[in-house]
Design a protein around this nucleic acid. Sequence first.
DNA 1: TAGATTGTTAATCGATTAACAATC
DNA 2: TAGATTGTTAATCGATTAACAATC
Lengths: 242, 242
Amino acid sequence: MNVRTQISRPDGTVLKIVSEPTLKRLPLYHRFLKESELAGRETISCTDIALHLDLDPTQVRKDLESVGVVGRPRIGYGLLNVIEELETFLGWNNVHDAFLVGAGSMGSALLGYRKFEQCGLKVVTAFDVKPAIIGTPIHGKQVLPLEKLPNLAQRMHILIGIITVPATEAQAVANLMVEGGIRAIWNFAPIRLHTPEHVIVHNEDLYCSLAALSQKLFTTLQMKHPNPGVDPMAPTIAALPH
Amino acid sequence: MNVRTQISRPDGTVLKIVSEPTLKRLPLYHRFLKESELAGRETISCTDIALHLDLDPTQVRKDLESVGVVGRPRIGYGLLNVIEELETFLGWNNVHDAFLVGAGSMGSALLGYRKFEQCGLKVVTAFDVKPAIIGTPIHGKQVLPLEKLPNLAQRMHILIGIITVPATEAQAVANLMVEGGIRAIWNFAPIRLHTPEHVIVHNEDLYCSLAALSQKLFTTLQMKHPNPGVDPMAPTIAALPH
DNA sequence: TAGATTGTTAATCGATTAACAATC
DNA sequence: TAGATTGTTAATCGATTAACAATC
């Protein structure tokens, strides 16, 4: 294993470091392996995984290696072994509590994602500022007034916060989370947050994502119909549903 | 401009190609520039943008150049000019209709995102299979039975589809979209879709995203507290809200 | 003019892909 | 054994960052 992929600690143990692209592929592997397990398989090869997920087999092999899984030439990887290693590596064996702020439609949707718990994340409480929303549980979860967050986060040792408020409120919410000792913020508001260095922010900016999608579409269409001055995506007069 | 960043077309016009990382930063620039415009500024420098968004100034300059914006040494870029160029480049001047399938909580949330229209995307109709949902408008948008999608998509020349159904249904929905002539799919279901080559799929896999977040947090905590055998994210017995 | 900022080329960095030896 | 598949090193590719000349 390459030196840069790990950090040696004083006590002799080793902390594996994995690049973000790799990290985002690991859950894909886990999902496919779980499916294969259900289908009754006991071993699997990189080629199989790569084919199904439309990836490069070498990439899959490198990813698995960086997690610490070992396979056997000619045979492949032990399905149960890889699944377990992935779950351990991704920290899915221990569920951690999280707070969510902004019980609007996106917030409510996330509160309903039961499968987050299988990925180590349990949203335990929601917060909001609207009196109309506070008090009524959503998907079985309490909605508390926002000002209670810092104190409660500290007392409950909450490390993860989810922000689903409008962009204008997001920075203020982030500040409260930092005050409460939260160390990682999953930010769905379309704005860049300013936080202390020790706090990780992960932006889920749907507008940026949308821009990438529509631009890709536009480019593809342009390449097929190089029609100068005409927007290939321009709506035409369309039949309406009767 | 580098040869690889553009495609020359027979008619002499040129199609600019921009990398995905760059593409995802463009909306960030647009947002900040709009703010600056409101604040009364007329020009802005890369340094300003970079400082505010925590990016490298050279990167910002390169990104803007790849879009085709020109600035003036010593002065910077004309705010209105850059904003307009970005909007043109991102195709935000023409709004395009889209279909959404899966009027559950995530689907409903997306139907409520009014600002998508400012980014060139108008979700015109939703589809679902549940009779209880069909017929009742959500955020003012009709919910039709799924089987009507292919025909309607063709008649209305819909090019963009959004999938917010459970993973088990997603492939079937994608097939219907392809049948209806849809060319770009924004997929929120946690599964890799198989589609013909000419159809673009953009995956918004929150589970993969979550894995990246929690792993980053884990690594950070580990680096600070190299405590062998102890999970730094393990919940402790916590005070409960009274 | 002086100096800040753009435009552009070169260097670095990191991820992906290719090549191939080891091995079951 | 033969051959498929892993493990690992090298080559390629592309994005970021640095350096610096051009210019207002």
